[in-house]
Design a binder for these strands. Structure first.
Lengths: 236, 236
DNA sequence: CTCTGTGAAGTCATTCACAGCG
DNA sequence: CGCTGTGAATGACTTCACAGAG
């Protein structure tokens, strides 16, 4: 296992591979080759082998990968063998929706606290899990008491940087930001921004293109189509 | 204006530039250089000039860019001079949260319909804007009647591909997908996936790293800052 | 003979660096 | 002069292609 720097593109893909492996396991399949796995999404098989290669040699030549074994390795690599405790700052619509989002509960993330500055909301609980809403001022205390290791920013853009500063001051090292703002992180703190407006505007750009440009979108689309066909065959 | 293929990384940044310009305009500033703009987020000024250069020569040498003028150009380029009509499939927590999300209303996206298969929800309206919830079966009809040009998938992963197929059959060309599933699009249809689980698992990976690797050298962290904005250049 | 693991080649993106306009 | 626009250089990511393990 050579500890060179792993790109975020790679870690994102590892997450996707893991999800796929979980499904395959549920389907009772024991073994899979990088080529078969690549067909599931439209990736190149060398990409998968290379991604895995950064972390070790998990495959068996001539056979492929043991699904259960690879699954365990990826779980470990991604740090999903421990439950992460998540605090959401901003108990607005997005914040509460995320607190209730089942997708998270199913994986190893537990939302343990929400924070807001609205006195109306503070003291309430959210969802069937009755997650408490605290005063934003108590972030530092609760990060410590509840052992929160991941924070989610779901506040308006204009206060996002201030909130991030509070979060970092409290010692949280990983932050998922939904505010459409370019946040400045600090050494050793990972800030990942999910920007819905940018995503939509990017779609808008695509729609604004002349139809010809949208369709003649080059090799990648062609390659996708090819794989699609392959997939369909396989399913039969 | 040379019509070569523009990377999605570029269009994502254009969206961010535009947001910044809107703020600068609100602050009453008239002109800005690429260097100043680059300082706002941690970008390279050449990057900005190159991004803009794909679409024309908007700058004035020795001075910089007229904020109002550049703002108008970017708005046009991103197709934001027209209001996009958005339909959200899945009236669960995420779907309704998005329907209510003010960030969208502020820009040029209007959510005009939700779709669900739960008879309890069909016929209801969501939020202060009273957006109606329709039966999923009516997607094709409503896409036509309401002139929906962007669809949002906010349904569980296992039904996401089926929903996408219905959406594409209805003629929608741009789709924002929140389901954690590798969807297969069709020629001329843009599918952009926002995968919360992957984002969180990527943060988890970071936390699982030895502290030393997390902090690394300042140069690398600076470079990472630029990547904060989630850029799924590969749509899963 | 199949499929992994991996250098080498190829492709795409970012940054440098500077000519030349205003 | 200062700042844009852009080739040329560098760097990052992906894909090819094949030696070699099982």
């Amino acid at each position: 296992m050579k500890r060179e720097k792993i790109s975020e593109l790679t870690t994102n893909r590892l997450s996707v591979y893991l999800r796929c492996l979980n499904e395959l396991r549920a389907a009772g399949i024991k073994t899979i080759s990088s080529q078969e796995l690549a067909d599931q999404f439209k990736l190149n098989s060398a990409q998968i082998r290379k991604d895995l290669g950064y972390f070790g040699e998990f495959g068996v030549r001539g056979t492929g990968y043991s699904i259960e074994e690879l699954r365990q390795h990826l779980t470990k690599i991604l740090g999903l063998d421990k439950v992460h405790r998540v605090g959401i700052v901003g108990a607005g619509r997005l914040g509460t929706a995320l607190a209730n989002y089942n997708g998270l509960a199913k994986s190893s993330f537990a939302v343990v606290a929400l924070f807001d500055n609205d006195q109306q909301k503070i003291g309430q609980t959210i969802g069937v899990d009755r997650i408490p809403v605290y005063d934003v001022k108590k972030i530092a205390k609760l990060v410590h008491n509840e052992e929160i290791d991941i924070a989610v920013i779901a506040v308006p853009a204009r206060v996002a940087q201030r909130v991030l500063n509070q979060i970092m001051a409290a010692g949280v090292k990983a932050v998922l930001n939904f505010a459409p703002a370019p946040l400045v992180g600090r050494l050793g703190v990972k800030v990942k921004t999910v920007d819905l407006t940018t995503s939509l505007e990017s779609l808008s750009y695509f729609l604004a293109l002349p139809q010809k440009a949208r369709v003649t979108n080059a090799r990648r689309v062609a390659a996708e189509l090819k794989r699609q066909v392959v997939n369909d065959k396989r399913d039969l």
